[in-house]
């Protein structure tokens, strides 16, 4: 049997699903690794593995199967994240396997809430006074490492870091409240 045209079509379908869920997969992987290091590697391994196993994934092009894809991909990503951390366990801080399992389960359970959470973050951010919003965004912008600020020992850096943490906590509380309200209002 000639598989080529069929394979081509499956591939386009795969690429479309991957493109659509890239952000979710990336976020999922990030939440299982202790830092951004390795996220690219794990996402890449996951994508390749997903393609290899794509024939096992039943897709009929429906919304349900699109939602199924992300869950399926996350399960694969979880294994990839586990094995990446196993490799690195000797030379850096990594999560225990039991912790990764718990994080993975909770993150998969939370996939449905992603959009709500994103819009809660955006509106909480919009509520911050201008100068605070500027500060929090500036330390999170590319090239600016909050980690570098956190590791500096100077008084000014410490003050800045604690200010940033206060803002992040405030944002978290706000997001928490908004999500609770969202559930409450059906």
């Amino acid at each position: 049997m000639d598989h080529e045209p069929d394979r081509e079509q499956r591939y386009s379908e795969f690429v479309a699903l991957l493109a659509r869920h890239d952000v979710s997969i990336r976020r999922f992987v990030r939440s299982l690794l202790p830092s951004r290091d390795g996220v690219d590697d794990v996402v890449q391994d996951t994508a390749l593995e997903c393609w290899k196993k794509f024939s096992e994934f039943n897709s009929d092009g429906s919304e349900d199967s699109a939602a199924g894809f992300i869950r399926w991909a996350c399960v694969i990503a979880r294994y990839k994240a586990l094995s990446w951390q196993r490799d690195k366990a000797r030379d850096r801080l990594v999560f225990r396997e039991t912790v990764i399992e718990r994080l993975a389960q909770a993150a998969i359970d939370g996939l449905d809430q992603q959009e709500l959470e994103q819009s809660a973050i955006e509106s909480c951010l919009a509520r911050l006074p201008d100068d605070q919003r500027r500060l929090i965004l500036s330390v999170h912008s590319p090239g600016q490492s909050i980690a570098a600020i956190a590791q500096e020992t100077g008084e000014a850096a410490r003050r800045l870091y604690s200010k940033v943490n206060i803002l992040r906590k405030r944002l978290l509380e706000c997001v928490q409240q908004r999500l609770a309200a969202e559930v409450g209002n059906g």
Partner: peptide
Amino acid sequence: LRAITLCES
């Protein structure tokens, strides 16, 4: 998890 999402966003 929420803190990770916040920082990434």
